[in-house]
Simulated assay, not measured.
Amino acid sequence: MSTAATDDGLLLPVPDEDGAPFWEYAARGELRIQACEDCGRLRFPPRPCCPHCHSFASAWRPMSGRGRIWSYVVPHPPLLPAYAAMAPYNAILVELADAPRIRLAGNLVAAPDAPLDSVDPARLRIGARVQVAFTEVGGVTVPRWLLEKA
């Protein structure tokens, strides 16, 4: 998968043939992960062939959308100009609850449409439980993450 920039300089994913279903499901508010139809193993990023059994048969399995912060970073300037005004913001890796070997990158935000800097970096914790939320950015629906309510 590659990226493209919006008119205001934000980076957006450019779906390729293998990953297109991920983004189509995201546009419907669903988090799905590619799975091998022969051995059943989940894989991300999406690809045409199972790295375990080499099958080309795949399906997209629904996930609960729950996970935990596996890692994070708080970028500081210098950054791309479109992101410098948002600093400090976070970029997190989320380990999915129902697929612990699958990790997705995103941002922890206060609400689905909140700005990237809407969560105080002091609130970030490895292991914090999160729930997926979806928002449209530049014509692409992207997953973001919200802290799970205790």
Rank of each mutant, 00 (worst) to 15 (best):
D113W: 00
V132L: 11
V142L: 15
A133N: 14
T135K: 09
A114F: 01
V119S: 10
C39T: 05
V140R: 15
R28L: 01
A122K: 13
R101G: 11
D117M: 06
G19Y: 02
D7S: 10
C39Y: 05
T141N: 01
W70D: 07
P115R: 12
I102K: 01
P75Q: 00
C49P: 07
P75M: 04
M86F: 14
R66S: 12
V94F: 11
L108K: 00
R32L: 02
A4L: 09
E24R: 13
L96S: 10
A99L: 04
Y83M: 14
V142F: 03
Q34V: 02
E148T: 12
L11D: 12
V130T: 15
A20D: 05
E17F: 05
M86N: 15
C36V: 00
L93A: 15
R68L: 07
A97L: 09
F44D: 06
V74M: 00
W70K: 02
G9D: 08
N90A: 11
G29Y: 01
A97R: 10
G138R: 06
G106V: 03
G29W: 02
H54S: 14
P15E: 06
L93D: 13
A111Q: 06
H54W: 15
G9T: 08
A97H: 11
V132N: 13
K149R: 12
A111F: 05
P75F: 01
Y72F: 11
Q34I: 04
V132A: 15
A110H: 00
A87I: 09
D117L: 04
L79H: 14
A87G: 10
M63L: 13
L146T: 09
P81M: 11
P100G: 08
G9A: 06
L108P: 02
Y72I: 00
P88D: 13
T6E: 04
P46M: 05
A105G: 07
E37Q: 13
P48V: 07
P46H: 02
I92C: 13
V14I: 12
E37W: 04
P112E: 05
N90D: 12
D18V: 13
H52R: 15
V94H: 10
F134K: 08
P21E: 06
A5L: 11
G139T: 15
Q131S: 15
P62E: 10
W60P: 08
D113T: 01
F44A: 08
R61D: 13
R66N: 10
A82L: 13
P88M: 08
R125P: 06
A122I: 08
A99P: 00
E24A: 14
G29P: 01
A128P: 04
A114D: 06
P21M: 06
R68W: 03
P62A: 14
V14K: 12
L42P: 02
A99R: 07
H76Y: 10
F134E: 11
A150T: 12
P143L: 00
L147N: 09
G29S: 02
F22P: 03
W145H: 02
C53P: 08
S71G: 05
S118R: 06
P77S: 05
T141M: 02
D38C: 03
D16Y: 07
V119F: 07
R47V: 10
A59Y: 12
G40C: 07
D117I: 11
P100M: 01
C50S: 09
S2H: 11
A26Y: 00
S55E: 14
E136F: 03
P115K: 13
S71W: 08
C50A: 08
R68M: 06
